[in-house]
Design a binder for these strands. Structure first.
Lengths: 337, 337
DNA sequence: AGAATATAAGCAAACGATTGCATAATTTGT
DNA sequence: ACAAATTATGCAATCGTTTGCTTATATTCT
């Protein structure tokens, strides 16, 4: 029934040679004669020999594993990012250890602890909404474990990051609305985290400024992304004297909750109210009234680029290299439906 | 900048005791005196000592890691299952290594290879659509690495599995439709895999038999889950002389593609045609015309139960135990919207 | 006090692979 | 044919931790 897993020791015994010779033969070391090399490789294949990774990991002080910490797998956005990460990792013969913070700081730290104990070679992370300090990540770098932040990047200096700029696309989105005649565009923003750059809002301001449309601060409202709060703030918006004719929604969750509620209020979508959003759900194509445009952030790309950056950091042992690699900013794109 | 990671050896040197004493002190071994124990634990804490997992893994021949192989993370169903798995794993201080087969057999095997090489202690798997033999899994069990199949379970004997029976709920779903007066219910089934039990179809037959409604084989059609094919088979159904008034859809992908296309054909949803489906997308609540009912399969539960079963297998070293544990079948539930 | 017992700590091997250095075996040059 | 150069192989330490067995120290009993 259960077989013993073969080791180089057994190969060495059967061939009456030393284990070092076997090891070198399997690695095509030049100082091993052709005959021996062939013999060893043949026997190894016959015995289904496979090097014991745990032994190698231990000896080399490397696990060939990277940790990937995400807020959530439910968000399609992150599931897509994983694909990019996995692909690059696979190309480099690395494994990926995934952990979900569920937007909980304590859990994020706990996951990081487990990963550190398991001696991952590097960490990729999209921080939780609660994360307001990156002390726990800095601690990793003390032990020479590089950390690359992606997508949700803390707004602090001297970190390695990959993220997608939303500034230009936000401006594009508003230009689109302005061009369609909208003058009162509300922005339903997500939870304010001091640590994430607020490019949506910056773009919102800039687009207004550029088009010489005055900002009405009461059109900027905040939701915690829950359905209830989104509905409440939307209702408040529609009770304004100067109510908006269009909505810039923080993401598709907010957009869909808004659209659903608007319909309940008997508003005509795309007539009384238009919605533009930031894409995280591809499902919107099944809706009768999807947002008229979305900002696409190319999660797969972001994941891949972040992983490539991490491998660059892993390759460079000297601390000077690490400082030089820096940050990568990708471009988002407005997709008009 | 970069610190060296402390080991028990250093602790031993600083306290002028042996490493075995340190090791035992940290493990609360009874043969270590209280004074020494305290000293060691205090110093270890001060030095931020953390046991080197790679060394332990190597020594113990255990990685405290389970492999989880899924067809796809895009399907919300599997993302939810992961949560159940993660939770149970965390409770047992285990890590989870996730791999996506993308419904590709070759990839499934490759992932399994990597996991075997990394010496995972056990494997959880929901097989790919292409998987028509389980040889690659049986090979694992030869090395005493238990395998638990879940959700998509191959239809072969002598395996450990956790899955959710769809039989009863399928009957419930059809009863619901029959009660609403439908007499011609089409079934759009997914790709036929010889290795997965076809409970949907069995339920479909049984419900008809029980209600003495004759089966019309032309109402049973097959899609490969692509939008194009789903639309084609639906169109063919609607061209029948005795066209159906309701559809039992293989899953929400099929259901939504069907509904979308029906609307394009100017059919009135829930009047000309009603749809019942198997839940994999919670998003359906945002639709104007969602399926009238869905069969819920409780992915989180399934994941958790499967992981518990795997741990049971890991705990029992004797091969007899392994045979006894067997299979777990959960119940699905019809949710009427 | 001296032997028997209980308590505390250390020695050394083991896990599987890698690798610098030494040594053995073979070939080449003269 | 013998030294020199080349090629092939082996020895042994190492990574950090665990653990069976031995030994040293302290306590208890008679």
């Amino acid at each position: 029934m259960s077989e013993k897993i073969p080791t180089i020791k057994e190969i060495a015994q059967k061939l009456n040679i030393s284990i070092s010779t076997v090891s070198r033969a399997l690695h095509d070391h030049p100082s091993i004669g052709l005959r021996t090399k062939m013999q060893v490789q043949k026997l190894a294949a016959e015995m289904n020999y496979e090097p014991n990774q745990t032994a190698i990991q231990f000896k080399q002080g490397k696990t060939f594993t990277i940790g990937l910490i995400l807020p959530n797998l439910m968000e399609e956005y992150f599931s897509l990012a994983i694909n990019g990460v996995e692909q690059v990792a696979l190309e480099n013969n690395y494994n990926v250890l995934i952990g979900q913070s569920h937007d909980d700081l304590e859990r994020e730290q706990k996951i990081l602890d487990t990963m550190r104990r398991h001696r991952v070679d590097g960490v990729l992370v999209s921080i939780s909404k609660q994360t307001n300090s990156i002390g726990h990540f800095e601690q990793l770098e003390k032990y020479n474990i590089p950390v690359v932040f992606f997508d949700r990047v803390p707004n602090v200096p001297h970190i390695h990051s990959v993220w997608c700029s939303l500034y230009d696309s936000t401006i594009d989105a508003l230009e689109l609305l302005f061009k369609k005649g909208h003058r009162r565009v509300a922005y339903i923003q997500g939870p304010l985290s001091l640590n994430i750059k607020n490019e949506r809002l910056e773009g919102y301001y800039e687009a207004h400024k550029h088009n010489k449309i005055p900002i009405n601060e009461s059109l900027i409202v905040t939701t915690d992304l829950s359905k209830a709060v989104t509905e409440k703030v939307f209702e408040k918006l529609m009770l304004l004297k100067d109510k908006p004719t269009a909505i810039l929604a923080f993401n598709d969750t907010v957009a869909l909750d808004t659209i659903q509620y608007a319909k309940k209020m008997k508003l005509k979508i795309n007539k009384d109210i238009s919605v533009v959003s930031y894409a995280n759900w591809p499902i919107t194509s099944y809706l009768d009234y999807p947002p008229i445009a979305s900002v696409e952030q190319f999660p797969n790309d972001q994941g891949a680029r972040a992983t490539e950056l991490l491998f660059k950091l892993l390759d460079s042992k000297s601390p000077e290299d690490l400082v030089a690699v820096g940050n990568i900013v990708l471009k988002s794109k407005l997709i008009v439906h």
